[in-house]
Every structure is written in structure tokens, then in C-alpha cells.
Design a binder for these strands. Sequence first.
RNA 1: GUGGGCGUAGCUCAGUUGGUUAGAGCGCCUGGUUGUGGUCCAGGAGGCCGGGGGUUCGAAUCCCCUCGUUCACCCCA
Length: 422
Amino acid sequence: MAEPTFRAPKGTRDILPPESGRRRALIDAFAVQAGLGGFGEVMSPIFEDLGVFKRLGESTDVVTKEMFDFFDKGDPPQHLALRPELTASICRAYAEHRPVPPWKIWYEGPQFRYEQPQAGRYRQFSQVGVETLGADDPQADIDVIALAWRFYESLGLRQVSLLLNSLGDPSCRPAYMDALRNHLESSAAALTDQSRVTLERNPLRVLDSKRPEDQPVIDAAPLMVDYLSDDTAEHFAAVRAGLDALEIPYQISPRLVRGLDYYTRTTFEFAADALATAQNAVGGGGRYDGLVEDLGGPATPGIGFALGVDRILLACDAEDVFPGPVPTVKIFVVDVTGGSHALGVCNELRDAGIGADRSYGGRSMKAQMKVADRSGAPFAAIIGEDEVAAGEVTLRDLRGDTGQRRIPLDSLAYEVSQLLTK
RNA sequence: GUGGGCGUAGCUCAGUUGGUUAGAGCGCCUGGUUGUGGUCCAGGAGGCCGGGGGUUCGAAUCCCCUCGUUCACCCCA
């Protein structure tokens, strides 16, 4: 293969039609669900002061080694970073604008992490998500989880599992962390080297190890759910009761920890069971009751999730659901008189709101018909010398078996719109 | 960052124990007696076999390096 001079940077890719149309449709579908739930869209900058993301946690790989950061041209230069996720930006925006709580917002857009690309993992990837800031009520947790669930269902996905856990809060997590650390340290000899390193930085993350050698120690580890304070346990129970009431199935996953350090209490993840790859988490989220305060805002509880657009589409492929949108071109104008008649006809059709396309370069009728077929348009309008002389056009059905007929040129837009509403 | 697989036409892949002008299918283009696609038939365009170095009389085929890609660990959506 002749090497092109340039190619998309590692871990990024061009998303071309028709895949691009499918992604747009997916985001539209999410916007519908978010809107139904009373969430408004926030569009925040793609880069922020590096400090915004540093608040996500010193033991989070996403901030410590996966950030695309750079200095601007200011004096002194500002240290900026492409956003590796959006929750921090949203909390920064909340602290900056102080909207009236509860602030219910949704977002979508690209995010950036400097990682080794892999199945379902890219350096530039897209997420859709929601955040509810300023509501401590477990009802808010349920609403948020139910929204994600509805969204997956609306796409046609059936093989998605909800994993649920509570990570406790500052009143009870320290005691658990001590117990966990004790357990892991006393069994350190049985852990892999990598897990021993992780243990130094963040014992919780050891529970996430996929290395088989670690499993016996992990299986024997104490569970956060056994250490929850009364308040936290009550909150967790309320969330579960709400999900039960909505008949949303879930599995309690007591070893579910998440990669960002800010999570407290309710924590959840959505796994696409149809995906055979290691990256089968199509969404995740939870509570982050301390994050707004960390970013200089008022103490504000928060709950939200982020869903990976790329992985959701992979899951849709695996389940063979959510095909792309139907073609927007409804009628293809075949002009064998040279092409100038197609110009006016297409414009008139478009004025009437009917998607119309034509070919260029004065190709043969056969060639133009091939392009018409390929366009996916259900109809073709054929214009030759005869039609021009008679002020008519031949309207041909490309998908059904009703053949073709000559109609007055004036009535083309009307006729097509009638046929399309059938 | 660590480890494995793979890199031949736009796409999916063949290429025999290294041997003359590198193949198929799909896609694309042009035709099939002059106005008709989706089926069929016939032609055609399109590859310095990822890049560099080496071994050899001779390398897509063997060796080394490099780049890319892919999968897994890690991390996470």
C-alpha cells in the first residue's frame, strides 16, 4: 500500500459516512432522553486549565500520565490540557456560574487520553453524559441511572448489565480502607508485582485487577458494603428500592471500584455482555459529593454518568441493532440533456423540503441510474429531450414495483411528497 | 509503559520449497447497436508487496531495524 503523506494521529480516526450519520443519530437519541428527563445541554471548552483536572485525584492515571497538556502563548504561559473527561469541567462551570440547584445538565463531545489504543479504546473518544448537581436525594441517583437505562433500551440494546456498588463516604470509607490495606498487605506475597505497586498508590484499585493470580486475594478481601455508615447504607438501600420499583435489573457488585478517585457512595457501571473485548464497559458513573468544593465552589453533592459513544456503537454492532439513519436523498434527478435541467429541478425539490441529488459531468443514463440506485433514494426523476419538450418529467420508483410514469414538471414536488407520506 | 499477532490493489484476502511482465473476489470505470439502476456477460483502470538495511545470481517470500496496525496487561468509556 502506498503510504499516504499524512494519516490521522495514533488513536484517532476519521469517521466517514455512513458511520458518521449513525453517531449523530445516537447523540440525537441521547438528547431526546435527556430532554425528557429535564436535563439541559452544557457545551464546555475542550481544554481547561490543567488544575481543573488535577483535582480528579493524584492517584488517577487519567490525570497523572494520560493527559494531553500544553502551554499557551501567554505571559506567563498558562498550563492547559485537553479534557480527559467532562465531569470536572461541569463542576468547574457550576462553581463559576452558580446556577440554581438542582442543576441537571447533559453533554456530549470528544475527550482525550494518551493511552495505547485498543479495541474500544481511542486517544480521542466521545462520551455522552448527564450530571445532577446540588441534590443529595437518592431519588436523583435513581433518575440518573434510569435515564441511562432508557437510553440503552431506546437504541435496542438488550444485553446490558447494570453493576451497582456503594463506595461509602468520608465517614466510613477510611475504616474500610484500613481494613482493605491490612488485608492486601498481609497477602502481598500472593499478589502480582503490578498489584503491589497499585497497593502503594490506591488499595481500592487493586480490586480492579484482571490478573488471575490476584483473584484469590481479591476474593478474600473485605467488602465496602460491610463498612457503610448508617446514612450511607440507607442511601444505598433507597437507590436499590427505586431501581426495583422501576424494574431495572442490577447486580450488586461489591468489588466495583471506578477509575476516578472522586467517587463516593453510589457507583455503577454498565457492561455490554455482547462485547467479547476487554473494554466492555459502555458506561459508568456515580456520586462525587466533594468535587465541586475541591474546585473552589460551594459544598455541592453531585451524581452523573458518562457513556462511551464508540463502545455503545460496537455493542450495537454486536447485537445487530440501531442501524444508521435512512438516506436523506429521496429522489435522484437523472438528466441526460447535459445536466443544466437537473439544477433547477433539484433546487425546487429542496425548496419543498425534499432531499434531492444529481450527478455531475454529463454521464450516460446508465451511469446516472447506477448512481441513483447507490444513493439509496427511493425515486428517480428522469429528464431527457422528450420530457423537456413536453414540460414533463419521468418519475420512476426505484424500490417498489410501480414502474414509472410521465408527470408534469410542475407537479413533481407534490407527487413525490405524496408518495413519501404513504 | 510491558508483551503477542499482523502489514500484498479503495476493501477482504491468495501468493506454492525464495526463481521470469504480482493474482482473486468485492468496489470503481466503460461497453453489451444508440433513454433506464438493482441480476447477468465482456473489457478496463488501479499495487516500486508499509519503509530502510542485510543475506543471495535472484526476495512479497529468509534475517535485522523502524513505522503503522491490532489484541491483551495496565487504564478506563
